[in-house]
Design a protein around this nucleic acid. Sequence first.
DNA 1: GTCTATAAATAGATAGAC
DNA 2: GTCTATCTATTTATAGAC
Lengths: 189, 189
Amino acid sequence: MAWQETHKEQSKQKILKSAAMLFTHHGFEKISIDQVMKKAELTRGAFYSHFSSKSDLYAQAISKAGIEAYKRKPVNCPQDMKDFARYYLSTEHRDNNYQQACPLAFLVSDINQQDNQVKQVYTKTLKVFIEQAKSLTTSREKALQSAVLMIGGLALSRALDNKDFSNELLAACKAGVNSLSKEEDSDVS
Amino acid sequence: MAWQETHKEQSKQKILKSAAMLFTHHGFEKISIDQVMKKAELTRGAFYSHFSSKSDLYAQAISKAGIEAYKRKPVNCPQDMKDFARYYLSTEHRDNNYQQACPLAFLVSDINQQDNQVKQVYTKTLKVFIEQAKSLTTSREKALQSAVLMIGGLALSRALDNKDFSNELLAACKAGVNSLSKEEDSDVS
DNA sequence: GTCTATAAATAGATAGAC
DNA sequence: GTCTATCTATTTATAGAC
């Protein structure tokens, strides 16, 4: 019994890992259950033993993707907003070169089309992101602005067909975030 | 002959108007050609006399949606970044109460999944937006940051399931844009 | 140019064997 | 729990009548 439970959990985690990667990079509609299951080395029929619907998988995959994406960020840049922005607003992140990209940016305009479960998971993930930003700046308002500059900047940079323009946009966002960080803040009490 | 040309152009404009509205609010994948044609009071079969593919329609619809969305903005707030931000980052804009919402925010993470024609149109539309912002601030960098705060802020606000949180985010972005405007800028030469 | 009808492909979800 | 097979619905795109 314990073996079976473990086996089932392992299968579910394989599905979730595949889904987190595929959905983050290509969005909800472009990815089919079949693609997710093939990447997880399973078949379509096994899917509904683990998830109630494609939308259910999407919600859980976004949550996992968020956790995976932040797993490295705090480690690499625990106290410094500049490092955070450099990591987040990098061309590598934009160009799909991170194993787990940030779903907040990659899926931002996809979420409004989804059901409440998905919106709730996305909102919770954003709150964690903003808490992270809050610890690196001096006010909640500045944390919100930094989050929008990072998430919005990365999302916009991915939509452009002009690399120079896209790079310029990332640089401007980095500068904006830096001007909101603790070190640059003249209001330190 | 002239009559037919006019008639054809009118049909195309009706299709484009329907597509601009439907695509902007629901994205590329959630809208079918059939839905667009029904809204335009035509049938599916007539579609391919006007557009080569659904993707072709999408590109032209984004262009039209951008033009329509900006048609009012400069009129309402010709010289003032604060008015621009108040208009753009309003709850009405977020909640689909504008007849023509801004495709830059509503579709931002959808564009990366599309072909080059779509990306080019989106990029061109963003350039116009930034030129608008440039005329209301003191540097290109501030214009880029303002654009990201507005477009990214609106996009993010639409993804949340918590109205208070969403409103707070819009307010923070408005404050951020205001601090980048000409009036608040201490570097005026 | 617009219509009806249909081809051809894809995908979400389910049934039943093992 | 996972497999193969299939149902059902949807959608892009095309063919041909008017």
